[in-house]
């Protein structure tokens, strides 16, 4: 459930986030020793973009407090589903090098399907494994791209 009030907080977060990003770029550029030999060094554009970010951020913050927000009527959001999808993606990038592409992608498949209300875990796991296995086969053997087999997977490979 998201009401107009928390959307306003989101709006303020947008402005605040962009402002922080601008400040970060400005500070980081200031701290980097410049290697500029040309007429315009590598620091000019970062400063310009940082300034642009901060100006836009201030204008967005002003809009947020003046009451111009995106969805006047409020917008209902199922945040549990969002967390579930985000967790599935995070699990994948944490696990992909250990478990390899196939199990980590299948896990992502199950997590996203659950976020969309499908609870048939076993069926989805099978689907995910087939999809991940199929892409693994096509990409590694057909297209010469390397999807990781994972450190766990390597145990099962014949020793070289």
């Amino acid at each position: 459930m998201t009401t107009g009030r928390s959307l306003r907080i989101g709006e303020a977060l947008l402005g605040g986030g962009l402002f922080a990003l601008g400040a970060l770029i400005a500070v980081e550029t200031m701290l980097t020793p410049s290697a500029g030999r040309g007429v315009v060094g590598p620091a000019l554009f970062p400063y310009l973009i940082a300034a642009g970010l901060m100006l836009v951020a201030l204008s967005l913050l002003r809009e947020a407090f003046a009451g111009h927000i995106a969805h006047d009527a409020g917008l209902e959001l199922d945040l549990r589903a969002v967390v579930l999808v985000a967790a599935g993606l995070a699990a994948q990038f944490l696990l992909i090098e250990y478990l390899g592409w196939i199990p980590s992608a299948a896990l992502l498949f199950v997590a996203v399907a659950r976020a969309f209300g499908n609870r048939r875990y076993l069926l989805n796991a099978v689907f995910g494994l087939v999809l991940a296995g199929g892409t693994f086969a096509v990409f590694n053997y057909g297209l010469d791209l390397n999807l990781p087999i994972g450190t766990v997977g390597e145990w099962f490979l014949p020793a070289e």
Partner: peptide, 10 residues
């Protein structure tokens, strides 16, 4: 939709 979006993310 569950399979569609799961597939899109994979």
């Amino acid at each position: 939709r569950p399979w569609l979006y799961a597939g899109i993310l994979v």
